[in-house]
Design a protein around this nucleic acid. Structure first.
Length: 553
RNA sequence: GGCCCGUUGGAGAAGUGGCUUAACUCAUAUCCCUUUCAAGGAUACAUUCAUGGGUUCGAAUCCCGUACGGGUCACCA
């Protein structure tokens, strides 16, 4: 009588590695008490998803906070969906956010003692474990074709029976070893399925680090663990890899909750201690009044690169995501005047259980706060690298006059309440174009939108006199007094109250006078502090602009 | 359809039986400050915690049902 032992040898004659060998090869990690080992394990099927960044941020934070290890594993077992080079893309994008793994897969080679960190290179490990599972009778070769499975499912659906490969519907579950050996020798294609001992009428409980106790129906389906292409399925690879990589807590999307009993079932069958689980909520979006998961295909904001291309500061996105993960982050951040995520006392229990709606308004708020908090040199460096990649025109100007651009970026920056008008780097150039002569010429050519409040002849005279008499190199109060004096001589009320009390007695209020100046210099009724703008442009440039505008009136 | 998870203001949410006349942040509105804007300051914005029952002297907080939303039932992860 042939045994499972014989079956295993027939299936994997070349496998001599054992689970014992593997246990020795990947010894328990020597980590301090409480240190957590976490991981980010994406499949290389495209760009970095916003939800993935969220999960990665949480994994990374848990490891760092506990003095543990955060590693990166590439789950490339789905050869059909794998996109060449996307694993490296993922790493690069993560790196932009400062999320760099302690160990794992890297474009230039693995780092760490628990590798390989790429599932397609772990075939020997999976095969070794599966061989033993077969010997123990906990896994078996299954000969169903896709058509067979389809027929089973159709039958179940038609009869309103729970679909799946389990119990009586697990066609090849109870084949004799002899029969299996015979079919294999005949060359029948096979996959390996896990033999579940579970009872669907019973419950399995596990404690989720975010949700607390979750109770689910026990797994009783015999899932495929080794596909016909020789690669494992996620279910098996997760159990195997996270055991031998000594992961202590699995952070993954909440869509995995329903399959957790399968994983627990396998951990039990292998006699391994299951890790803790933390199922992270998905980030949602409102679509026609309904919440739905951010979609890779439909939503541009599902791609992290969208924010990078838009010029959001990576830290702003990270800070925003952290405010979703732990809503008390905002209070902490304000109290400590800091956006340093590594200093924030992150708590897994404070992660909310339902998916947050992505709120671009709030991202913008953080964007402004973060950019305003950046020291000038850092801001300048970030803006330069953004412009280099996304805005050739702006970048050319930065290259040509770095100090000039720095002065512009520094406007109202060193105050107790710094200027906050850039939510993202792409907001900057359109707002500061007028600082450059040729751009200003274009603005001027299209017509300065003076209001009709003050007649043009007066406007012209005021601008000319301003050009002639305005002081440069003095403090703001002195400069402003000078402007007021000139304004007053043309009938502008220096006090807004006086003006409001009797508008007809004046040419306008002093703000109207300032508006003329502002309009001529910047082309807009809105600008940052005029005095600083004037000082940056310099007397000659201001005189040029004023003269040219006046001449056109 | 089965199973699981969730439901506090426009958004993120605090709150786990009396201290809540429901914190804080964003958004919005109004006002103040002000040479414009961005800020900054102040005020307003849930008579009520999806809903119906129940437990209790007392419930957003505990229990049950219902509704709604999300997820999952692959040789995809």
């Amino acid at each position: 009588m042939p045994t499972n032992e014989d079956l295993a040898e027939l299936l994997f004659p070349d496998v001599t590695l054992t689970i014992d060998d593997l246990e020795k090869r990947y010894p328990a990690r020597q980590l301090p008490e409480g240190a957590q080992v976490t991981r980010f394990a994406p499949s290389p099927t495209g760009f970095l998803h916003t939800g993935s960044l969220f999960t990665a941020l949480i994994s990374y934070t848990i490891a760092k906070k506990s003095g543990g290890v955060y590693f990166f594993r590439l789950e490339d077992t789905d050869t059909k969906r794998t996109i060449e080079g996307s694993g490296d893309l993922l790493i690069r994008e993560l790196a932009e956010f400062g999320i760099v793994a302690d160990e794992g897969y890297f474009p230039d080679g693995d780092k760490g003692e628990y590798g390989p960190y790429q599932q397609s290179k772990r075939r020997d490990i999976y095969r070794a474990v599966i061989k033993e599972l077969i010997k123990r009778g906990r896994a078996y070769p299954d000969f169903c074709t896709p058509e067979d499975l389809d027929a089973i499912r159709k039958f179940q659906e038609a009869n309103k029976i729970l679909p799946g490969y389990y119990g009586d519907y697990a066609r090849d579950r109870n084949l004799t070893v002899e029969e299996r050996i015979k079919r294999i020798k005949e060359g029948t294609p096979w996959v390996i399925r896990f033999r579940s001992n579970g009872n669907h009428d019973q419950k399995t409980k596990f404690v989720d680090a975010i949700r607390g106790e979750i109770e689910l129906q026990d797994n009783d389906t015999d899932v495929v663990i080794l596909k016909s292409d020789g690669l494992p399925t996620y279910h098996f690879a997760h159990v195997c890899d996270d055991h031998f990589m000594r992961t202590t807590i699995i952070t993954r999307g909440e869509e995995w909750i329903p399959s957790t009993p399968i994983h627990l079932d396998m951990f039990r069958a292998l006699g391994w201690k299951a890790p803790k689980y933390a199922h992270i909520p998905s980030i949602m979006k409102l679509d026609h009044g309904n919440k739905r998961k951010l979609s890779k295909r439909k939503d541009p904001e599902a791609a992290v690169s969208y924010f990078l291309d838009m010029g959001y500061c990576p830290r702003a996105l990270l800070v925003y995501l952290m405010s979703i993960a732990n809503s008390n982050f905002e209070e902490w951040s304000i109290a400590h005047k800091s956006f340093d995520l590594s200093a924030f006392p992150f708590s897994m229990k404070k992660i909310s259980m339902d998916g947050a709606l992505f709120d671009e308004g709030k991202l913008n708020y953080f964007g402004k706060e973060v950019i305003a908090s950046l020291p000038l040199n850092e801001l300048f460096a970030e803006v330069s690298s953004y412009a280099k990649a996304h805005d050739a025109e702006f970048y050319a100007r930065i290259e040509k006059e770095p100090e000039y651009v720095k002065r512009i970026l520094n406007i109202e920056k060193d105050r107790k309440t710094p200027r906050k008008d850039y939510a993202k780097y792409s907001d900057i150039y359109p707002l500061i174009r007028y600082f450059f002569r040729d751009e200003w010429e274009k603005i001027e050519a299209s017509g300065i939108p003076f209001s009709d409040k003050v007649d043009r002849a007066t406007v012209k005279k005021v601008l000319l006199e301003l050009s002639d008499k305005m002081e440069f190199g003095v403090d703001e109060a002195t400069w402003w007094n000078g402007v007021k004096k000139i304004g007053e001589s043309y009938g502008f009320a220096i006090s807004n109250k006086d003006y409001k009390a009797n508008p007809s007695a004046f040419t306008g209020s002093i703000s109207d006078c300032a508006e003329l100046l502002r309009l001529a210099i910047t082309g807009s009724t809105q600008s940052p502090n005029l005095h600083e703008v004037l000082e940056i442009l310099g007397k000659a440039e201001v005189a040029y602009r004023l003269g040219k505008v006046a001449a056109s009136l």
